[in-house]
C-alpha cells in the first residue's frame, strides 16, 4: 500500500471565537504523525475535521491528500472509547462497516484480522465479556477491516493500563504499517515511542519537534526515546 500524505492547513473558529489560527499539519505519507498537546487544546477538533466529522466549528483552509485531494472514503477512525456495539459479537463489530454500506462482508478476512489481534477464541463473544484491552483490539481489527489508507487515532490507548497500552502500541504499529497514521495524544512518551513526525500543539502555537533517531516502535529504555520524551515534556510545559 502506498498511502498518501495529508495536508491540513487553516484556521477555525467556534461561535465567533478563534479556536486555532494558521495551523499547518502535514501527515507523513505511510508513517506515523503524532499530534501532541494537553487536553482541550483542539487536537481532537483537527482530527475530526480530517475525518470529515461534525466539530461545531467553522474551518477555513485546506484538508487534502497529497495525491488526489479528496479524503472521502479513504479514512478510518479509532477513538479513545472503543465504540463497539454492545449488542453485536466481536465478528459482527469487525464487519459493521460493510453492513452499514450494504455490502457483503468478507468473513474470512474478518476472522483473519480477529486472529491477528489475538482474539480468535473470542470471535463469537459480545463486548461486555471482554477486557478494556481486548475491546481496543477488536476496535483495531474493525479499523483494519475498513482497509483505508489514512488512519486517524484519537487517543485510542489512553484509557488502558500501562502494560496493555504498550502491547496495543506495538500491535497497532505493526498492523498499520504502510498506512498514513495520525495519532492524537497527550502522552509525550507515546509520541516519542511511535512517531515519525511529532507536532506539539499548545494554546500559543503549533511547532514540530524532533523525533528520536531510532526506528519506531522504540524500546522503553532507548536513550533517544527518553531524551525526546524529556524535550516534549519541556515544550508542553513551557507555554
Amino acid at each position: 500500500m502506498s498511502a498518501p500524505g495529508v495536508r491540513f492547513a487553516g484556521s477555525a473558529d467556534h461561535a465567533g471565537a478563534p479556536l486555532f489560527s494558521g495551523i499547518a499539519l502535514d501527515l507523513v505519507a505511510g508513517g506515523w504523525t503524532c499530534l501532541l498537546g494537553v487536553s482541550g487544546v483542539g487536537k481532537t477538533t483537527i482530527l475530526r475535521m480530517i475525518a470529515g466529522l461534525e466539530t461545531g466549528a467553522t474551518f477555513t483552509g485546506t484538508i487534502e491528500a497529497a495525491d488526489r485531494g479528496a479524503l472521502e472514503g479513504r479514512v478510518a477512525y479509532m477513538a479513545q472509547s472503543d465504540l463497539l456495539l454492545p449488542w453485536a459479537t466481536v465478528r459482527e463489530n469487525v464487519t459493521i462497516g460493510a453492513r452499514l454500506r450494504g455490502e457483503r462482508a468478507d468473513m474470512a478476512r474478518a476472522d483473519r484480522l480477529v486472529a491477528e489481534v489475538g482474539l480468535a477464541d473470542h470471535a463469537g463473544r459480545k463486548p461486555h465479556a471482554l477486557s478494556g484491552g481486548q475491546r481496543q483490539r477488536v476496535a483495531l481489527a474493525r479499523t483494519l477491516m475498513e482497509d483505508r489508507e489514512i488512519i486517524l487515532l484519537d487517543e485510542p490507548f489512553s484509557a488502558l493500563d500501562a502494560r496493555t497500552r504498550a502491547e496495543m502500541q506495538e500491535l497497532a504499529y505493526d498492523l498499520l504499517k504502510g498506512r498514513t497514521v495520525l495519532l492524537v495524544t497527550h502522552d509525550p512518551g507515546e509520541a516519542a515511542r511511535l512517531a515519525d513526525r511529532i507536532v506539539v500543539m499548545t494554546e500559543a502555537r503549533t511547532v514540530e519537534a524532533e523525533p528520536p533517531n531510532t526506528p519506531a516502535p522504540r524500546a522503553f529504555g532507548d536513550p533517544e526515546l527518553l531524551q525526546a520524551q524529556a524535550r516534549l515534556m519541556t515544550m508542553l510545559r513551557s507555554e
Binding site: R48, A51, G52, L53, E54, G73, V75, A76, Y77, A79, S81, L83, L85, I96, G97, L100, R101, E146, L152
Partner: peptide
C-alpha cells in the same frame, strides 16, 4: 461516537 464511526464508514 457510534454515529461518528458510521459516518467515517460511509
Amino acid at each position: 461516537g457510534f454515529l461518528d464511526l458510521a459516518r467515517t464508514m460511509g
